[in-house]
Amino acid sequence: MRWPNSGRELNLSSEADVCLVLEGTYPYVSGGVSSWVHQLIGAMPDLKFVIWFIGSSSKDKREPKYELPPNVLGMREVFVHDYDMPGKEHFSFPSRRKKEVWEKVKAFHRSIRQGNVGPFEEVFWLTVPDRGVLSLEDMFYGKDAWRSLLKLYREVAPEVSFVDFFWTWRFTHLPFFRMLLMEPPKAKVYHTVSTGYAGFLGTLAKLRYGKPLILTEHGIYAKERRIEIAQAEWIYEQEEGRRPWTYRGGELRPRGTRWFFKDFWTRIFLFMSRLTYRCRLRR
């Protein structure tokens, strides 16, 4: 692999000291977090870094704003909203104990609705490539997945449009399925500067390789996403409600069926935030 605008070859085959997991920032965006990351790498020339960049779509135009320092071994990119899924020939997962496994998946969904992300680790090992029981095809196209989705719909949103529920579920969950297929770069430590998708990828790397996960953020990623979602006009609103917000469980949340899909999106980011904070530096 060759870094753009540079004659230097990048090497991802050897283990780095630190893998920086970055969402939508360095090296394609200048200023702010990117400047801090660039200074951090340059201030520790004795450590070898690898960059794990998370973007929206590979079709987006992107040009490096920084020249990678000499102690960066390489960079890997993940685009969470690319929807080209692997064909069936790519699925090599064994198929066994399906009923028992799906019960665990259902229990996991019930737990995260209660704010408990603890069971995620068990579900992760059911899906990790070459070691799991469920394939991506099982989770996305299988009959058991369809039945589980119908059950989830009846439990949490029977009053809203199923078509809108179905496509919202797919659009929000496909990035997770894509990331579960990613092979993390090898590193002694994984360091994410935010929760969200970067925190989720860092968590996957920690679980898969058993290496420490460091999180350094200003603590407002999930809050920023909540504000963006509340103001978003592209998220479908089903019907008029009397009051758009209510204070529940110590949090300000959308209220009523009109706001169901915004609440759905908000919970996705809260899940990633809670999961990252739970897994950081936990052995």
Rank of each mutant, 00 (worst) to 15 (best):
S14L: 15
R267T: 01
L181V: 04
A205S: 14
V33C: 11
F271L: 10
G24R: 11
M85V: 14
V101E: 02
S95D: 10
V37T: 07
R274H: 06
L68F: 12
V21L: 04
E233R: 15
S56L: 07
N71S: 13
P184F: 03
L134H: 04
W265T: 01
P185A: 08
I41A: 01
K262L: 07
F140N: 10
Y141D: 10
L47G: 00
V78T: 10
R282E: 14
W234T: 15
G142E: 09
L10N: 03
G7D: 13
G250Q: 11
Y26I: 06
L10G: 08
T266Y: 00
T127P: 02
G199Y: 00
L10P: 00
G241N: 11
P4G: 06
P158V: 15
K186L: 14
R225V: 08
F124E: 02
R225T: 09
E121A: 15
H109Q: 13
K61E: 07
L47C: 08
P129G: 08
K106R: 14
Y277G: 01
L10R: 08
Y277N: 10
I51H: 05
L152N: 09
K186G: 02
G115W: 08
H81E: 13
D144H: 08
L73M: 12
L47S: 03
K186C: 04
K186M: 14
T246A: 10
E23A: 07
W146N: 15
W52C: 05
D17L: 13
V105S: 00
I51F: 09
Y28A: 06
V72A: 05
P64S: 09
N116T: 06
Y197T: 06
M179Q: 12
S35G: 07
P158H: 13
W52T: 06
L47P: 01
V189C: 09
V123S: 03
T276I: 03
A222E: 12
V163G: 01
M272G: 00
G202R: 04
V78Q: 00
H218V: 06
P185L: 10
E103S: 11
L68I: 08
S30P: 03
I268V: 11
M85L: 15
P184D: 08
I112N: 03
G32V: 08
K206N: 14
K188H: 14
P212Q: 12
F176L: 13
M182R: 09
I268C: 04
G142Y: 07
T257L: 09
R170C: 13
G219W: 13
Y277V: 04
E100C: 04
K151Y: 06
R243K: 15
E103L: 11
N71W: 07
P86C: 11
E100K: 13
R170M: 13
P158Q: 15
G55N: 00
C19P: 00
G249H: 14
L270I: 08
K48D: 13
R97S: 12
Q238W: 08
Q39G: 08
G24F: 02
A205G: 04
D82T: 12
Q39C: 05
S14H: 13
T25S: 12
R62W: 03
R282S: 14
R248I: 13
R278D: 01
V156C: 03
L275K: 02
A157I: 15
G256P: 05
